[in-house]
Design a protein around this nucleic acid. Structure first.
Lengths: 210, 210
DNA sequence: ATCCCATGTGGGCAATGTCCACATGGGATA
DNA sequence: TATCCCATGTGGACATTGCCCACATGGGAT
């Protein structure tokens, strides 16, 4: 991790990567540009050659997170091409797992820390892409007549609300594994059960046949 | 706002109140203990007589928020005693309005900034009370045979996920009024329409008759 | 081989969170 | 009513942080 030559070579990526690690460990409140630089083994001013300020580094970390989400959703769409219900479930499950295993990253992405007014367009774009990759699943489900017809935005909004809802409650600790177990990441099965319950309640309003 | 005598008399409450104001204006990232103290007109160390650290003041602000939520829900329960559906809707609408008008407070309450591990018991209690006041509405709806029977926690989880989901998206700016209008608080009617749409999709799975 | 500018360095500044010792004075007590 | 104590307030100090400055380095285009 220590650079030997004067120039690091790939500092920007290192900053985002180490920054993401440090974010998950210490939370957005305790993250420090200088410490990240120190960890990488670079001067406390080097980061400013790649980001105008701390906020921009955080944006880049969130952006990276959205990229991965989009990629995952796209993959799911191919993997379960003719099963929109499974697509939706797996997509939800993935987000909930991120919320459980990387709560601070999830919060940075979907929480209000990065105010959208200040958000750079790259971040906005990445976030929109991720959202659209979910909307696409809903649309496909409608076309295949698995989900009820009607305003697709309305259905998407509902589905996303539900998904973001649990994910947020999981990541923020509002919801906890029984008996105050240490962390969610230790009991993914319970998580899956919860999401299944949600889908049971939710899909009965979303499914075509009943 | 300036205290004249050596002793302020009600500093703790002032800190929470001014702190909440400042939170809404500047966001949790830019809030500063010293500035709050300065605004109240008190030394930069006075707050430490009432809170062990900055984190504890933030917890107190969140706690206050939860108290108000609980109170509101309890009031709604009386006002619409025989209409659980309206109770649920109004309760959701209220949370969404808080999310729109005081996004930073909402984020502090339901976001992951205050890690539950560190959260003091008073805060945990206040949060649990608020959640229970919602669960109570669901239960009452089941007893009155307006909502489907079955595991009440399952239904509550679903309802809360949906509500927290939109609220979070509204407060975090993931969802915006059309045409990039400045803020949600200027178009509460659109907000109400959205929540109505959600309930339309959601209640069809939750309602007993269909 | 040369030179330039993207990238890195260190020093400096104001602000912040938190620790310390000390000041004040309202309310219980004698 | 006079006294004293401790909850509450004060200022000083220190490490840390974000960010600005001028300056150093060296790889790639010329």
């Amino acid at each position: 991790m220590q650079q030997t030559s004067y120039h690091h070579g790939d500092l920007r990526n290192s900053l985002v990567s180490i920054g993401a690690d440090m974010l998950n460990e210490k939370g957005v409140a305790s993250i420090s540009l200088r410490e990240i630089a120190r960890t990488i083994g670079v001067g406390h001013n080097a980061p400013y050659r790649h980001f105008r300020n701390k906020h921009e580094l955080l944006e880049a970390i969130a952006e990276e997170g959205f990229r991965k989400l989009t990629a995952k959703n796209t993959r799911l769409e191919l993997e379960f091409a003719h099963d929109p219900e499974t697509q939706l479930f797996e997509s939800a499950m993935h987000i909930v797992l991120v919320a459980a295993e990387q709560p601070n990253l999830y919060q940075l992405m979907f929480g209000g820390f990065l105010q959208p007014i200040e958000a750079n367009t790259a971040l906005k774009q990445a976030a929109d892409d991720a959202i659209q990759s979910l909307v696409k699943i809903i649309k496909s489900g409608q076309q295949q007549r698995v989900f009820v017809q009607g305003d697709e935005m309305k259905l998407s909004l509902s589905a996303m609300s539900m998904i973001q809802g649990i994910a947020m409650m999981v990541s923020s600790g509002k919801l906890r594994p029984l008996a105050n177990t240490a962390s969610w990441s230790e009991c993914p099965i319970v998580l899956k059960g919860m999401v299944l319950q949600l889908f049971d309640v939710f899909l009965n309003g979303l499914k075509l046949d009943k």
